[in-house]
């Protein structure tokens, strides 16, 4: 009997999502049974990495089979869920899911910043959003999506915030690395554009970069071709 099929049967009839550790405990308990056969005994000390690999394979198999349900891992626990496109019928069958109201856009923005940049202080969030986040933070804390995780080692030791397991459950994420575009947003490196940022054709002046070059040329007593750096250095020279 294959490990992945055993796991499938366990997850099929489990009352709640099972973590890899819980699955391993079940396998160990089954091996400890009197009537355990050789297969069960061989799985007594199965590694967690093997279990994960088997589960991943199971996920791929369900994907290729294109069933109406799939195996998924939310916040580290595996379970069978239906595909979202069958929502309308399921709602008719079991009723609307008991979920708190959808989050507002400011709350989602704040949550996005926290989820990608945790641990993060309130001041850092405000710096990114450019507005006060007290109210939104309170909402997020009340809903249990974020929580204080520690204190920043800066003056005042402000509390730092991070997302909770409920956050992963709420968005159906396996873990933080499962966040969309996680690597990109975790630490954004913004390339400085080579061209000058502003140059309004209607304005009398040109960009400051270009202006810096101009005074260098007509200055009397200076040897003609100087670099802009040289032009800057010339002013203290004149004072002498």
């Amino acid at each position: 009997m294959e490990l992945k099929l055993i796991l499938e049967s366990l997850l099929f009839s489990a009352q709640k999502p099972l973590s890899v550790k819980e699955l391993r405990d079940v396998l160990a308990a089954a091996a400890g049974h009197e009537a355990a056969d050789a297969t069960a005994k061989s799985l007594a000390r199965v590694k967690e990495s093997e279990l994960t690999a088997a589960l991943e394979q199971l996920v791929r198999e369900h994907e290729t089979a294109a069933r109406s349900y799939r195996l998924t891992c939310v916040a580290g626990s595996w379970q069978f869920v239906t595909q979202p496109e069958f929502g309308p019928w399921l709602r008719a069958l079991v009723g609307v899911k008991a979920r708190p109201p959808r989050l507002s856009l400011p709350a989602l923005e704040t949550l996005a910043i926290i989820s990608y940049r945790q641990p993060i202080t309130r001041a850092q969030i405000e710096q990114i959003r450019g507005v006060n986040v007290d109210a939104t933070m309170q909402t997020l804390m009340e809903r249990g999506l974020v929580g204080a995780v520690g204190r920043a080692e800066v003056v005042g030791r402000p509390p730092t915030y991070g997302t909770t397991a409920l956050f992963l459950e709420y968005f159906g994420l396996r873990g933080l690395e499962d966040l969309p575009a996680a690597d990109e947003l975790r630490r954004i490196v913004i390339e400085r554009p080579p061209a000058p940022v502003t140059a309004d054709p209607g304005l009398a002046t040109t960009a400051p970069e270009q202006l810096a070059l101009q005074p260098a040329a007509p200055q009397p007593g200076e040897s003609g071709n100087e670099s802009p750096v040289g032009a800057k250095d010339s002013s203290p020279g004149q004072a002498k």
Partner: peptide, 20 residues
């Protein structure tokens, strides 16, 4: 990113877990 989270949030409303 917030917009993507919003999509995920809406999608979660349509996903029903198997609860035997």
């Amino acid at each position: 990113a917030a917009a993507r989270l919003q999509v995920l949030e809406a999608e979660q409303e349509n996903i029903f877990p198997r609860l035997p």
